[in-house]
C-alpha cells in the first residue's frame, strides 16, 4: 500500500510538471488534473512492485532527496568537467593506456551501487563494464591506468576520483 502511494505521488508529480501552464487552478486546468490523477492510479497499480522492490523507505525522507541535487551540482559537476577536459585532451593527442580493473566499493545497498556505477561512467575516464553481484565489486574500463595499478587485485573506489570524495557523498545519500 505504501509502495502504491509512493509510486502514485512520483508519477503524478511528473505529470503535473509536464502539463504546467495549461489552466487557471494553480497552473493547471481541471481536465488535466483529473486525467493526470486517473492515469497515475492506473500506472501506479501496474508498476508498484518495481519502484519499491527492497521494501525500504529510507529514500522517502525529503532531506535525503534534497541531498541529491546538492551532490549533482556540487562535487559531481566539478568531477564531470574535469573528466571531460581530460578525455578531450586524450582525443586530440591520442595518448591512452586502457584496461579493465576491479574496484572495491564497500557500499551495501542497491541504490548506492547504482549511483556509484553511474557516477563512475560519467566521471573520471572510466566506464562500468560489469558488477560482481555477491561482493558488490565493480569491473571498470579505465582509459588511462595509473602506473602500478595493473598489479593490484582491487583498487579502492576513492582513488579513482581526484578532487571530491564521491564514495563518501554517495554513502551519505544512500545508506
Amino acid at each position: 500500500m505504501i509502495a502504491f502511494f509512493v509510486t502514485f505521488l512520483l508519477v503524478f508529480c511528473i505529470y503535473l510538471l509536464l502539463t504546467a501552464g495549461s489552466g487557471t487552478i494553480g497552473f493547471w486546468s481541471a481536465s488535466e488534473l483529473i486525467a493526470g490523477a486517473g492515469l497515475s492510479i492506473v500506472v501506479a497499480g501496474i508498476t508498484r512492485k518495481f519502484l519499491c522492490r527492497s521494501n525500504n523507505y529510507r529514500m522517502a525522507n525529503p532531506l535525503r532527496l534534497l541531498l541529491i541535487p546538492i551532490y549533482l551540482l556540487g562535487p559531481f559537476l566539478v568531477e564531470v568537467t574535469k573528466a571531460n577536459v581530460d578525455v578531450a585532451g586524450r582525443v586530440i593527442t591520442g595518448r591512452i593506456r586502457p584496461g579493465i580493473i576491479r574496484v572495491s566499493s564497500d557500499l551495501k545497498t542497491d541504490l548506492g551501487i547504482f549511483i556509484l556505477a553511474n557516477s563512475i561512467t560519467l566521471t573520471p575516464g572510466t566506464i562500468t563494464v560489469d558488477i560482481d553481484e555477491k561482493t558488490h565489486d565493480l569491473f571498470i574500463h579505465n582509459i588511462n591506468i595509473a602506473p602500478g595499478d595493473e598489479q593490484k587485485a582491487t583498487v579502492p573506489a576513492r582513488e579513482l576520483f581526484s578532487i571530491a570524495n564521491i564514495p563518501a557523498w554517495i554513502r551519505r545519500i544512500a545508506e
Binding site: I96, R97, P98, G99, I100, I101, R102, A117, N118, T121, I127, T128, V129, D130, F139, H141, I145, E150, A153
Partner: peptide, 24 residues
C-alpha cells in the same frame, strides 16, 4: 552505455590495446 559495455564483453569482444583485463 553501461549496458552496451556489458553486452560487448559478454559477446567476447576483448579490449584490444589493454594493459590488464581483470574481468576476463
Amino acid at each position: 552505455s553501461h549496458a552496451i559495455a556489458r553486452g560487448a564483453h559478454r559477446s567476447g569482444i576483448k579490449p584490444t590495446p589493454a594493459v590488464v583485463d581483470r574481468l576476463e
